[in-house]
Structures are given as structure tokens and as C-alpha cells.
Simulated assay, not measured.
Amino acid sequence: MFRFENPEYLYLFIAMPFLVALYIYLNIRKRNDVKRLGVLSTVKRMMPELSLKRSYLKFWLIFAALCAGIFMIARPQFGTKVETVEKEGIELVIAIDVSNSMLARDVTPDRLSRAKQILSRIIDVRKNDKVALIVFAGEAYVQMPLTSDTQSAKLFLNTIDPSLVPVQGTAIAEAIRLGMNSFSGDQDVDKAMIIITDGEDHEGNANEAARQASEAGIMVNVLGIGSVEGTPVPESEYSNNFRTDSEGRVVVSRLNEQMAQEIAQNGKGLYVQADNSNTAIRALESELNELETKKSATLTYSEYDEKFPLFAWILLIILIVEFLIYDKKNPLFKNIRLFR
């Protein structure tokens, strides 16, 4: 795949035909001025050192150099670049609740969107860690296995919505157990989980799962999202209508803060409530920074490889050639007749 990183500079090519037109115009004027001195063939014999063809060639070399320069600053990119990068971090599994109650709007813009914003920030900060993503509602699924390519994790954020898990509920215990199986077997690196949930319709056994994770050396942190007071649950992400129960009453979702605190306590981790500030993120960052890191060399893939150095070399070579060509005939090469 080929692209330009800064395609806006390609608009400079619009000026190139005007540059050619200006050059042609100036040459016509120059010829007319010479004709005033006499017949053109006679004037040429009077100035044997002058070479018009050299002048033309120098212009087209400058023209080609400008074109190469435009391509260079537009940053052409092509193919895939593979690098071996040494990182020093922990292993981190992030499990995010995607149940319908996460559409509630007691945080801006809604619980799920705010959770994704926090998740994106955590991934940016923990860029040296190996990260895995799990989504859960009534069931839990691995959205992305453990990887050091944290930027790929951000790509998965756009696909996270309640439709990923059709079975409703909040199966935190299943998410924790799935997270435990998502870590590597490396005993020399610290491991942590972050559970992002409102705890609504909690199905139990999460405390025991968190205790088992802690005993296995995995710290379980819980990020509670939503308000204790609660708010109605919209029918969909963009709907202003609210869900109702079988008796027609509006469904109100509340953050189960006590449950979230118990899970974090059993998992030897931190509980923090998310709001519209970055307080929760900073608290989690501080907690994760206490863990011991390990160096590891991993392959990272970038979708595009920079090709502008090729055009930089072309530009340099053209300018050197242009500099070496005199406007007049060079006496050192008087016997070499490239320009007649």
C-alpha cells in the first residue's frame, strides 16, 4: 500500500506549469533581445563560449530537483516496516464491561464511551507493557490477546459496543478467570488486571475469582464507572428513549460500588471510581508503577515505511550534476562534445 503522510504539499505541483511557462517566456524575450544585435547564427559565432543547450539542461535539472523536493516533503510511504524494539514493562489485562447498562449517561458522554476514553489513555501511558483486552457482559470474550503492540489495542476500541456480547449480565468472575488464562507463563514479570464496570446485575463469585488471581500473583484493580444514585438506561447509544422492565417501569442503573470495592480488596488491588476528570487514571497509573517491570525484545509492525530518503538522494544528485554543468563551455572538456 502506498500513501503520502503530508499530501497537502502535493498542491505545490500546481505552480510547476507556471514555472515552465515563465521560463519559456523569458527565453523568448532573450532571443528577441539577441535578434536586435543581429542574425542569431552570427551572434552565436561571435560568442563561441555560450551554450544555450547547457542553459536548457540546467533549467530542467532544477525543475526535476523541485519535483523531487515536493515528493520528499510530502513524505511518501510504502509497505510494512518491521522493527525489533526492546521494551520494559508489565503484563496488563484490561476487561471492559459492555452490558447495556454501560450506555447510561451519568458520566459524559456515557459510561461505555468514557470507559473507552480511559482505556485509550491507559494504553498510551502503558505503551511499554504487554496488553490484552477482554470484553464481557453475561459472558466474557478475548477481544485482543496479549501483545506488546499497544497501538493495535487502540484500533480495537472502535469496535467495542454492547452488540459484541449478546448475553446480558455482568460476568466479572468469568472475565477474571479468562484474564488469568490470557497472561504468559513468565514468572519474572509482574501481572495486573483492570476491570472497568458498573457492576450492574453482578452474577457472583467475582470475589473468589479475584482471590484466586491474587494468589497467582495477579493484582486485580477495579475501575467503577457510573454514579451510586443511578440513571435511566437508553435503548441504544444514540436513543433518547429509555429501557423499561416487564411492568413498564424505566430501568435505572446504579454503580454497585460495594461489590467493586470487595473485588479489588480480594484481588489485592485498587478500587477507584471514574468521573469526568482524570483522577481515576492517575490513581491507576500510580498503582501500576509500583509493579516490577521486565525487559523484553519484541517485533513491532508499522503499516508504512518512509521512502522520502530516496527522493532526498535524487534531489542531491540532481543538484550536484546541475552545479557541475557550466553555462559556458568548459575548456577542460573542450574535446568532449555532449552539447553541440
Rank of each mutant, 00 (worst) to 15 (best):
F2G: 05
F2I: 11
R3S: 13
N6D: 08
Y9E: 01
L10H: 03
L10N: 05
Y11F: 11
I24V: 14
I28P: 03
R31P: 00
V39M: 10
T42N: 13
V43H: 04
L52S: 13
L52W: 11
K53D: 00
S55M: 11
L57Y: 02
F59M: 06
F63D: 00
A68P: 02
G69M: 12
I70V: 08
I70M: 06
I73H: 01
P76V: 09
Q77C: 07
F78S: 15
G79S: 09
K81N: 14
V82A: 14
V93L: 07
I94D: 00
I96T: 12
D97F: 07
N100M: 15
M102L: 07
L112K: 06
S113T: 13
L119W: 04
D124E: 13
N128Q: 13
D129N: 12
M144E: 04
S148Q: 10
D149Q: 13
L157V: 07
Q168C: 09
G169F: 02
A171Q: 03
L178K: 07
S184F: 10
T197M: 04
T197Q: 01
H202S: 05
G204C: 03
A206T: 02
A210S: 06
E215L: 14
G217C: 09
M219Q: 10
L223F: 08
L223H: 09
G224L: 07
G224F: 02
I225Y: 04
Y238R: 15
S239Q: 14
N241W: 08
R243Y: 01
S246G: 07
R249Q: 14
S253Y: 04
R254D: 01
R254A: 00
Q258L: 06
E262W: 06
L270K: 15
Y271T: 00
A280I: 04
A283K: 15
N289E: 07
N289W: 03
L291S: 04
S296L: 13
Y301E: 06
S302D: 12
K307Y: 11
F311A: 05
L319Q: 08
I320G: 07
V321I: 15
K328E: 08
K329M: 09
N330C: 10
F333A: 14
K334L: 10
N335M: 10
